[in-house]
Amino acid sequence: MHLAYPVVLSALLFCTGLYGVLARRNAILVLMSVELMLNAVNLNLVAFDVWLSRAAEETLHSGQALALFTIAIAAAEIGIGLAIVLAVHRNRGTADIDKLRDTAEGHDPDGTGDSVSDSDADAPTTRAAVTKTEATA
């Protein structure tokens, strides 16, 4: 098999994941796109490992070992990421990364300040405000 096939597929999958990370708004969809990018890297690692283990008589199998490590790290990453997303959703009532603009300078998405949008009638946001006031009290 030509090495070009898996490598080109890997590049295309990586760019698909890149588009998803940049264009998606929901945090869980961003995590899915990150998974796609990690899988593209895995395909690259496995393809080069198979090539080198035949062509260069390489017995270390570093590509496959690194692919296994990447899979394990991706599993850890998805666990931590989902825990963070769930914590944010519990405190803010939203999982949209466009609306998490507390540390952004300059423009606000709603045209109003953060304190004003916190006192809106939205139920989870008032929950967050109540939590904040009780944490300071």
């Binding site: 080109v8 590049a11 295309l12 990586f14 760019c15 698909t16 890149l18 588009y19 940049l22 264009a23 998606r24 708004r25 929901n26 969809l29 990364i97 466009d98």
Partner: peptide
């Protein structure tokens, strides 16, 4: 589901894909 910078993201992804491939 998609944010406002979809076109920029598409341009970046296509450029990266062309360069990588």
């Amino acid at each position: 589901a998609d944010s406002g910078n979809r076109r920029v993201a598409l341009a970046v992804a296509v450029a990266a894909a062309v360069a990588l491939v």
